[in-house]
Design a protein around this nucleic acid. Structure first.
Length: 286
DNA sequence: CCGTTAACCTGAGAGC
DNA sequence: TGCTCTCAGGTTAACG
């Protein structure tokens, strides 16, 4: 589900709610996520202070005291929910408000006293991973390519990733080892703005096209963040609000519809590239 | 090393 | 109503 913009939206709201707070309790309902959560996971992070929250590509990085790092990847269907505690009048009982919380697949509950953060993930492609040093965090991040907002993400970097490559440009944009943070929606959108056919091989990408990808990868992702991400079916921020960038899609999910470029009368095509649907304008993207 | 495919999971929606 | 089929914002082991 979530690509860089959606993860950024989730990260921002987490920053507003749990940064500089202590994790009081962690309750694992189902440890079988993409990677199995170890038995001692809860014990290790309970009572630790969250010193900072940041993001790299599609990873949320929760920094804890004493150089511990909790990495959260939302996979395809992971969502985090903020659930507030209410005190029932005339009794000592307290309970957690569950208005927008899904009924099934709530796997991890992190308690902060007056509220909880709950991880829900029907498909269980997401994961929580704990790292215990700055070194292991750096190693983990460096296994990925640079994200478009990285200082070192420049023309030279992209040219080196494209040249001599047989792989088509759509798959290159999706390959997190080459470029990280872009997923299936934004790959199609970026290629449309860059006027590049998704089937074009990396080695055939011109200098002008490389510059366009450099420019529009940043521009499209930035704009999507500004609009709160894209909600196709179920992306929500932790307060259950949807994003609105889907209203600005140029090609994604627009098969049979007219190309939105002025003066173009072509119809948006859908093709499967490595089992992922890919949308483009045959006339505008060469 | 490079590139492609199948597999991991559940649920929604379409077609019959 | 129910069955079968396809598809979904991601990643990666296995294979040629």
């Amino acid at each position: 589900m979530p690509e860089l913009p959606e993860v950024e939206i989730v990260k921002r709201s987490l920053k507003n709610t749990i940064e500089l707070r202590k994790i009081k309790k962690v309750d694992i309902k189902n440890r079988n996520l993409r990677f199995k959560i170890q038995k001692n996971f809860s014990k290790k992070i309970q009572n630790k202070l969250i010193t900072n929250i940041r993001r790299y590509a599609k990873y949320i990085i929760i920094e804890l005291e004493n150089s511990w790092y909790l990495i959260i990847h939302l996979g395809m269907s992971g969502t985090l929910h903020l659930v507030k505690k209410k005190i029932k009048k005339n009794t000592n009982l307290s309970f957690y408000q569950v208005k927008n919380l899904p009924k099934k697949h709530n796997h991890i509950i992190m308690s902060f006293g007056s509220f909880q953060i709950i991880y829900n993930d029907p498909r269980r492609f997401g994961y929580f991973k704990l790292l215990n040093s700055k070194k292991s965090l750096n190693k983990f991040i460096s296994k990925n390519g640079l994200e478009p907002f990285d200082k070192k993400f420049n023309f030279e970097y992209l040219r080196n990733k494209f040249k001599n490559r047989e792989k088509n440009i759509k798959n290159i944009l999706l390959d997190q080892k080459l470029i990280s943070g872009i997923g299936n929606i934004y790959a199609s959108e970026i290629l449309f703005y860059s006027k590049i056919n998704p089937f074009k091989k990396g080695k055939e990408i011109s200098q002008i096209s490389t510059l366009n990808i450099l420019k529009y990868s940043k521009k499209v992702l930035k704009r999507a963040i500004k609009k709160g991400g894209s909600t196709i079916r179920d992306f929500k921020n932790i307060k259950s609000n949807s994003g609105t960038y889907q209203n600005e899609f140029k090609v994604y999910d627009r098969q049979y519809k007219k190309c939105l470029n002025r003066g173009c009368d072509s119809i948006i095509q859908k093709a499967m590239i490595s089992n992922r649907s890919t949308y483009y304008c045959q006339k505008c993207q060469k």
